[in-house]
Design a protein around this nucleic acid. Sequence first.
DNA 1: TTAATTTGTCTATTTATCTAGACAACTAGA
DNA 2: TCTAGTTGTCTAGATAAATAGACAAATTAA
Lengths: 249, 249
Amino acid sequence: MEFVERRSGISLWRQIADQIRIAISNGEFSDTDMLPGELALAKRFEVNRHTVRSAIASLAREGVVRVEQGRGTFIAGHQRLHYPIGRRTRFSAGLAGQTRTLSGSLKESRMETASAQVAQALALDPGAPVVRLVRVSTADDVPLSRAISWFDGTRFPDFAERLAKQRSITAVLKSFGIDDYVRISTRISAHHADPQTLEDLRLSPGAIALRTEAINAEVGGRRVEYSNTYFAADRIELDIDHETPSTGL
Amino acid sequence: MEFVERRSGISLWRQIADQIRIAISNGEFSDTDMLPGELALAKRFEVNRHTVRSAIASLAREGVVRVEQGRGTFIAGHQRLHYPIGRRTRFSAGLAGQTRTLSGSLKESRMETASAQVAQALALDPGAPVVRLVRVSTADDVPLSRAISWFDGTRFPDFAERLAKQRSITAVLKSFGIDDYVRISTRISAHHADPQTLEDLRLSPGAIALRTEAINAEVGGRRVEYSNTYFAADRIELDIDHETPSTGL
DNA sequence: TTAATTTGTCTATTTATCTAGACAACTAGA
DNA sequence: TCTAGTTGTCTAGATAAATAGACAAATTAA
């Protein structure tokens, strides 16, 4: 007997779909790689069989399971990508080897004035000109993240134009004479995805966005980039590198 | 005009409540600290006024807003706690100063045999005895996290009994002669909270759990603790410490 | 006081979700 | 082939969510 809550604003089929998805990721059915029958699930969640069918139909649409008449419902392996975060975090390098294809597309770019938050992160004066970019990354034809980045507009006035040609942030920074940069702070939180993120990442309402708020700086400490990245939480997890403070000893 | 999706398994009032909550945390209404009127919100989301009222009622139950007849709906400040994560992560110390009260309670403890995952994390053989603890932490009378920890059962047979007296993991480890330990890996992911977590953290279905999967070890590298901690995502964010690799230079 | 604007409550109706049951279609094993 | 167990489809009815409109109650400012 599991818990489903009525009148919660989440339909029963959706609560059941969420619980089955979690159970799968916890390896509950890994012995057979099959879900129990619809009648068994209906009994377990104390709902009608049709309600369970709605939940399974939703999981099938997501590609989490595959249903075969007369045989049963099979689990279609569903592994999260691993994204390492540390001082030397680089997007493409971090996911290398985990996907067949990996691409990024620039959705928006504009010059704006720095909000208090952006100004503080980049160590600029509030109202200073900044370049704001929105990029969506896609791995194996599935959107993975939506990133909003800010750069000093005075120092990097044509960042967007260069990015169109260079294809990676690292390469563009190199073209500005910045050979190396490091992550100096990362803040992680989780939210229900906002409408724009839902659309760009092809998620459905209620889906979770894992947000990283990061500051990158040159080795001397001069701020280079401030970014807010929203990952589709069901497609990725973040691995934190705890580097040894004194490597040489 | 904002997006609300029908037939998605999430009721309209809940989608609207989620969007208003996000808008508040983005500072959208920070100029007046008030929500727009019910009619204005109904127009913005293209729904009936009563649907907006349901959404606001839900936010009021959560304590996010406060409604006053004839005056309007006021935003009740709602700040996330900040939990620093680094090599020297300590639960109580990390949240010190951010809350009036902070307590932890042991919900379960038992000896079990190590699963493949636990065995690998603690560098034990699968099937070896391990101590499994479930602890729930509470800050200012609101549950914050649910942590499942595993320790080597051979080395720490009476860990649970000592924890009942000592009150912190660090203190218990000290009683076993371990004066210092460091975080060697942290993996972060976000999920819809499972039913047990919903109950322990007093969340409603659809709520988000921010999960950290962590390994702590002695300075020599010997594994001490493996833990899975589920935080209420709307009450906390995680700050990653990117320590400088060579501090002395 | 008055008017305008706000939230609160009530009734009625429509639409979506969930339940209930029956039976068809398909699969695997006896 | 037969049977038991599975998913697929249909009908009907009950419950919950959303819409629509009217008016009450409280607040604010003119």
